[in-house]
Amino acid sequence: MIHQVETPIVELHDITVSYHKKPVLWDIDLTLPSGSIIGIIGPNGAGKSTLLKAMMGLVELSSGYVRIFDQDLDQVRSRVSYVPQKESVDWDFPASVLDVVLMGRYGKLGLFTRPRKADKEVAMECLRQVDMENYAGRQISQLSGGQQQRVFLARALAQEADLYFMDEPFAGVDAATEKAIINLLKSMSKQGKTVVVVHHDLQSALEYFDWAVLLNLRLIASGPVNQVLTPELLQETYGGKLTLLAAVGDLLTKKEFPSRE
């Protein structure tokens, strides 16, 4: 059940990604529709984060190419925003909440230009949208997990992009924060923005997303959420059918085969 889209906002053409010669994504052919909230779903280690990184050009591709807005990523970077897993940074870094949100303006500012007053105002406005304006001066080491997540969201909002990639924005947040975040994403999508979200909880997936992508080392399904979240496809994603693929991957590391000649 892999639905291809006519005029996709993101197009992956035959992507393979490997770490130390071991492929963790195999031959992904994927197109995503614009203006929707898209969930990427799969078990731990399925390659969800890697898929986002591949779309953002943060990992080397063993094969294939990515097109965004039907262009090369480098041409459209200012319209794309990436929110890493919040565990990927050291929150003991000497910075305030506002400092981090201001980083969202750096892409627009370019090199060597310092943030101006207008950028600070945009940053404050973004903090307000995630309900964190009272924390602007707070040290980031003194935030809870949910607050860290909101700060990352505010930074993404400050980028004023059209396409957002978010790696597990709901991880480690309470129900109220989760609700606030999803409402924010929904209002963004109403403004015509596209949001791609890595997500873990199947229960809420049906309600949150317009489009779902099931992933486990390979692409299992991609399409409107109610057609994708079926028992059979979920079984295929979470069931043990892929042991063969994993075993071959292991073999490739051990034998040091090139994954592409």
């Binding site: 990184k53 953002m56 050009g57 943060l58 480098d74 970077r77 200012s78 794309v80 925003s81 990436y82 890493p84 990927s88 940074v89 050291d90 870094f93 910075a95 400092d99 981090v100 980083m103 750096y106 892409g107 500012l109 090199l111 060597f112 310092r114 943030p115 930074r155 980028q159």
Partner: peptide, 18 residues
């Protein structure tokens, strides 16, 4: 500004094209 952002969040810095 550039050193700060690569020290704090390298992947983000890369994603904005630094």
């Amino acid at each position: 500004k550039e050193f700060t952002v690569i020290a704090f969040d390298e992947n983000f810095a890369r994603s904005i094209g630094f």
